[in-house]
Design a protein around this nucleic acid. Structure first.
Length: 299
DNA sequence: AATTACGACAACCGCCTCTCA
DNA sequence: TTGAGAGGCGGTTGTCGTAAT
């Protein structure tokens, strides 16, 4: 009876993550996007951590384009409003806030907003149960709740700075190169591994496979599942700029950037030849996205 | 200066859902 | 159709920094 634990809790490290562990995890996930699963990651990456812990660390802290702390009034208002409508669906609420994780939103709620909410609402909310929805805001319990602030804005689509990112990528130094952050991380990782192996503390696994190969590709028992590194994250790692174009990768697509990027398609092939595994994945996503027929162009 | 209380946030736990063989 | 494994999620706990005493 009962579930088998996801890992041997006696042999995994717990508690705060060190910089070295972060570097290893970041490098591994970025380098081998779409090529494995979380449960096997620690073994392959040489981390003495539970796979779920790795996932949490990546999603809540290491993932690119995340923002921590400094919640704006607009965000507070939106959280309060959404909580009034759907309750503690933190992942849903976080999805409406760019760069926020459910854990962040939840912590922010517990430390700050909860008090504010109960000041506005004399009685605790009748927490919507499973199967709840926006419609559940019409509380049938009869609890008299004061009106909640209206949402500050409609849900924001996932936005990425694609045109300038690609422009920077393509024109970087006059050549066809991307920022090879992952290369730096890889070097950092290799240095750490070497340091560990020469320092007596044995790492349980071998270094990552060579450029362009995936963990599972070199594993006889490779899983077919993928890292949850979506294209939003992938693209978000490209260089930032103050000028943003709006590109949404799901639902109705609008992509002013890609109108200008049309002429770059040829350059994609060159980029694919010179990029790391992770960047190749990103570029393939971009190329396939651009070629989607329902891509709309905005002015 | 030392101790305590509290806030903020990182991390863990365990259950539920989803996917796939 | 079903069961196992993996991911997702919300609640809770742990840890650390800082303000208050």
């Amino acid at each position: 009876m009962g579930r088998s634990p996801c890992c041997d809790k006696t042999s995994v490290k717990r508690g705060p993550w060190s910089r070295e562990e972060d570097a290893i995890l970041r490098s591994f996930v970025q380098r081998f996007a779409n090529a494995g699963n979380w449960i096997t990651l620690p073994q392959k990456a040489g981390l003495r951590r539970c796979g779920k812990s790795c996932r949490l660390r990546w999603l809540n802290y290491l993932r690119p384009a995340l923002r921590h702390g400094g919640f704006t009034d607009e965000e507070d208002t939106l959280i309060l409003s959404l909580y009034g409508q759907i309750g503690s669906k933190w992942s849903v609420i976080a999805a409406k806030l760019r760069g926020r994780t459910d854990n962040d939103v939840k912590n922010h709620w517990n430390t700050k907003l909860k008090k504010r909410y109960y000041l506005l609402n004399t009685a605790p909310p009748t927490t919507p149960t499973s199967g709840d929805s926006i419609a559940a805001a019409d509380d049938p319990s009869g609890v008299d709740q004061p009106p909640l602030p209206a949402p500050a804005a409609p849900p924001a689509p996932a936005l990425v700075n694609l045109d300038t990112a690609l422009a920077t990528a393509v024109e970087d130094g006059g050549g066809l190169t991307l920022t090879h952050e992952s290369e730096q991380l890889y070097a950092e990782l290799m240095g750490l591994i070497e340091e560990q192996s020469t320092g007596g503390e044995s790492m349980s696994s071998s270094p990552p496979p060579p450029l362009g190969t995936s963990p599972t590709a070199s594993s006889s028992a490779g899983s077919s599942t993928t890292w949850p590194v979506d294209v939003h994250d992938t693209v978000a790692q490209l260089p930032e700029s103050s000028e943003r174009s709006l590109v949404e990768f799901d639902g109705t697509c609008y992509a002013r950037a890609f109108a200008e990027a049309a002429s770059w398609l040829d350059s994609f092939q060159d980029l694919l030849m010179t990029s790391t595994y992770h960047e190749v994945i990103a570029l393939q996503e971009l190329q396939s996205f651009y070629e989607r027929p329902n891509t709309q162009v905005l002015n």
